[in-house]
C-alpha cells in the first residue's frame, strides 16, 4: 500500500514538476525532461516493464497538450524504457557515469524519434529548436544524476 501511494505520488508529482518547470522556469525552450529522465531511471533501477508503463502514462500526459501526433511521446518514452531495460543487461546503469551517458544519448534519441514520427505521420520533421536540442541533454544529465543520488540516499537500489 505504501509502495502504491509512493508510486502514485511520484507519478503525479513528476507530471506536476514537468508542467511547473515548463510553464514557469523554462527559458528559450531549455528545460529538463523530467518525465523522460524518470522513465530512464525507473527502467534502469526497476526494470523495463515498470518503466514502460510509467513512460506510457507520462507520454500520454505530454501528448494531451499537443495538437498533433497524439501518442508520439507515449511511444517514445515506452521505447526509451524498453531499450534502457535492454541496455542495463550490458551496462551497470546503477553507476552515475553510465546512467548519465545513457540519459544523454536517449535524450537525443528521443528528439530524433519524435522528429521521425512527425515525418511519418504528419509529413514534417518535429524539430524542437537548437537551443532545446543542445541544452536539454545536459540538463537531463544533471537531473538524472541528482535523482539517482536521491534514489540511492533513500537506500532503495
Amino acid at each position: 500500500m505504501i509502495g502504491f501511494l509512493r508510486g502514485f505520488v511520484l507519478f503525479f508529482g513528476a507530471m506536476f514538476l514537468q508542467w511547473w518547470w515548463n510553464t514557469h522556469l523554462s527559458y528559450w525552450g531549455a528545460a529538463p525532461q523530467f518525465l523522460l529522465v524518470l522513465t530512464i531511471l525507473i527502467a534502469a533501477r526497476r526494470g523495463p516493464v515498470l518503466g514502460m508503463l510509467a513512460g506510457f502514462g507520462w507520454g500520454l500526459y505530454l501528448d494531451v497538450a499537443r495538437a498533433e501526433l497524439f501518442g508520439a511521446s507515449a511511444l517514445v518514452l515506452t521505447l526509451a524504457a524498453y531499450f534502457v531495460g535492454v541496455a542495463r543487461r550490458q551496462v551497470d546503469l546503477r553507476a552515475a557515469g553510465p546512467l548519465a551517458a545513457t540519459t544523454f544519448l536517449f535524450t537525443w534519441a528521443a528528439f530524433v524519434g519524435l522528429g521521425l514520427l512527425g515525418l511519418i505521420f504528419t509529413k514534417s520533421f518535429e524539430w524542437s529548436g537548437w537551443i532545446s536540442v543542445v541544452s536539454t541533454p545536459f540538463l537531463n544529465v544533471v537531473v538524472v544524476t541528482v535523482a539517482s543520488l536521491l534514489w540511492d540516499a533513500r537506500g532503495d537500489r
Binding site: G47, P48, V49, M52, L53, F56, G59, D63, E68, L69, F70, G71, A72, A74, L75, T78, L79, Y82, G85, R89, L117, I120, F121
Partner: peptide
C-alpha cells in the same frame, strides 16, 4: 530475466500497437 524480457516484449508490443493506432487515426 527471461520472464521479464518476455513481459517487456509483450508490453512493448501492446503499447506500440496502441500508440501507432493513436498516431495513425488521429481524427
Amino acid at each position: 530475466m527471461q520472464r521479464e524480457t518476455r513481459i517487456a516484449n509483450f508490453v512493448l508490443g501492446a503499447i506500440s500497437a496502441l500508440t501507432l493506432l493513436l498516431l495513425s487515426l488521429p481524427l
